[in-house]
């Protein structure tokens, strides 16, 4: 037995992340009631960190935002289709208004938290977050919320183009209806964040949740109204889209802006629909999270 052989045996095995292998037990942090005041006081700092993160990776951030070019492609397609003749009641201006609004809403309510969460669970880095006296849901939420202003900077030119374009005539002018836009956007953001957080949390139970994210995106793109307006879909598909939560992320905020027939009451009902789904997804998420963290601790963080 040589000396070098014994030292390498004593060191950590190659390929094992030290944080995952030698992290202190996290259970203790969970038993104690959470100090809510400390959490509240930490939120401004968390937001500041989030802004700094977003600014540090701004080039990637812009490219990431540009990859949401699907609405522009669909816009090009449907406006040339509508130029021949209106398509199921949609003329060119309607399509311009619809897809530019989709682009703005998508930029504001989109989320990528599932990738981060999956990565942290798989690599064991989540144990560090669990040790902190702030719930990981809140720390992730703060960091993502902080990127919203920069996303607004990207969405703003699109909104200006929308107001100057032919689509401006197709927008609603009812201010009482438009007042519901802000709550609808906030709930849309929250809904998409919660759903993606829940999908990321599936990594507690599955080896790879990224395949599920792909499937989710496919379902989401159709049922949210991201791909085509709900009103031009085949009837059976539109019926499914009406009851599922996904239209809360894109379709509802867009409808509030582009559908003058809605009225303030109709807009309020749509926001109520979003709120109901937000509560339901949050309940599901907290159940999933509690079971997942127990499992995570069980396989030795």
């Amino acid at each position: 037995m040589t000396a070098s052989g014994s030292t390498s045996a004593a060191g950590p095995a190659p390929g094992v992340t030290p944080g995952a292998a030698s992290g202190p037990p996290v259970r203790a942090a969970h038993r104690h009631p959470r100090p809510w005041r400390a959490t509240l006081r930490a939120i401004p700092t968390l937001l500041r960190i989030g802004v700094a993160e977003t600014v540090a990776y701004r080039a990637e951030f812009v490219i990431w935002m540009l990859t949401t070019s699907l609405p522009l492609v669909m816009l090009g397609l449907w406006t040339s289709v509508a130029a021949e003749a209106p398509f199921r009641g949609y003329d060119s201006a309607d399509f311009v208004a619809y897809y530019l609004s989709v682009l703005v809403v998508r930029n504001l309510t989109g989320s990528w938290v599932s990738w981060q969460l999956e990565d942290e669970i798989r690599r064991g880095m989540l144990s560090m977050r669990l040790l902190r006296p702030i719930h990981p849901f809140l720390s992730f939420a703060a960091s993502h919320l902080a990127s919203v202003p920069l996303r607004g900077v990207i969405a703003l030119p699109v909104a200006v183009v929308l107001l100057l374009s032919s689509g401006a005539d197709a927008l609603t002018r009812d201010l009482a209806q438009l007042a519901w836009l802000l709550p609808a956007l906030a709930l849309g953001w929250f809904l998409s964040f919660c759903i993606l957080f829940a999908i990321g949390a599936l990594a507690f139970f599955l080896e790879r949740s990224s395949a599920i994210v792909d499937v989710y995106f496919g379902v989401f793109a159709v049922l949210s109204g991201y791909l085509v307006p709900l009103t031009i879909m085949p009837a059976w598909l539109a019926a499914v889209a009406q009851v599922t939560p996904f239209r809360g992320i894109i379709g509802i905020p867009v409808q509030i802006v582009t559908d003058p027939s809605l009225g303030p009451m109709g807009a309020a009902r749509l926001v109520g629909f979003q709120a109901l789904w937000a509560v339901a997804v949050l309940l599901l998420l907290s159940w999933l999270w509690r079971r997942g963290v127990r499992r995570f601790e069980a396989f030795g963080a």
Binding site: I63, W64, L66, T67, G76, S80, V81
Partner: peptide
């Protein structure tokens, strides 16, 4: 490497005949 994601997003146009665009 995000550029590759951007390219993939653009490649999505390929599902349509080019003449439907103007």
């Amino acid at each position: 490497d995000n550029l590759m994601y951007l390219l993939s997003a653009i490649f999505d146009v390929g599902r349509w005949p080019i003449s439907v665009f103007r």
